[in-house]
Amino acid sequence: MSAAADDGELIARIKEKALFAREETVRLTGIAKTGHYASAFSCAEILATLYYGDIMRLKPGEPQWKQRDRFLFGKGHAAIALYPFLADYGFFDKSVLDEYTRLGNPLGDHPDMRKVPGIDFSSGSLGHALSAGLGMALGGRLNKIDYNVFVLLGDGEQHEGQVWEAALSAAHHRTGNLIAIVDRNEYSLDGKVDDVIGIEPVLDKWQAFGWNTIDIDGHDVPQVLRALRDATAASDGGKPTVIVAHTVKGKGIPYMETQFGWHLGYLHPSDEKAALAHLRSNA
């Protein structure tokens, strides 16, 4: 399958939701007074395509629906971009967003399955999510329920040994319903990922571990849509699929795209308006 001409409306909706995720990231970070702007911005199109591109099978208002597709946020520090979507799906009330990270609010910097309806697995400690997703994929097989499991990994997360344990294991167990997406935004906390510890050739590594590989521009919505469609279409073949999505950390706000320090940050309220204007003009 490929993104066809009649996908125009779908693509417009995905783009609109990606902008919404970025705007909400700015607003919610303003409430918390610190947040992972840049990490959220790099995966906004990926999240929007999963949740609004007819990729994930979900039932609005029914976060525990057994047949649903699962999503695990390996790079859980970007959960801020997902919470607005979950509220939008009616998994919890939108007013919960307004108290983001306040004492007792379910929404923290990292997503918590025990507190937030619609979060399929808690994360925060890098490297665990692909394993947990593998368990869910195997569980689908044992329970004879057909669903896909999507795991969004950071590129810095490729440093974690457990990712490769899970990669080896998933190929062996032929969990074709497991789809990993690597947000290749090139930066981790200490600088360029490849200066910290090089991960290239990352696509070849996954291929060598027995995975189908797809290489895309993670901000080009038609490409993201096509890749996710191809990955889910291939999911009964037994080979798990990884999509390496090349992205820009801080995508949408020029100074965040060039200054890697915005992995974590807090815009002064007076700069918020200009930031939102950047996001809208770049959408």
Binding site: M113, A132, L134, G140, G161, Q162, E165, A166
Partner: peptide
């Protein structure tokens, strides 16, 4: 470690 995290994932499916 992969086994333990995957077991947690298995448990989420009942």
């Amino acid at each position: 470690q992969n086994m333990v995290s995957a077991s947690a994932g298995l448990a989420t499916t009942g």
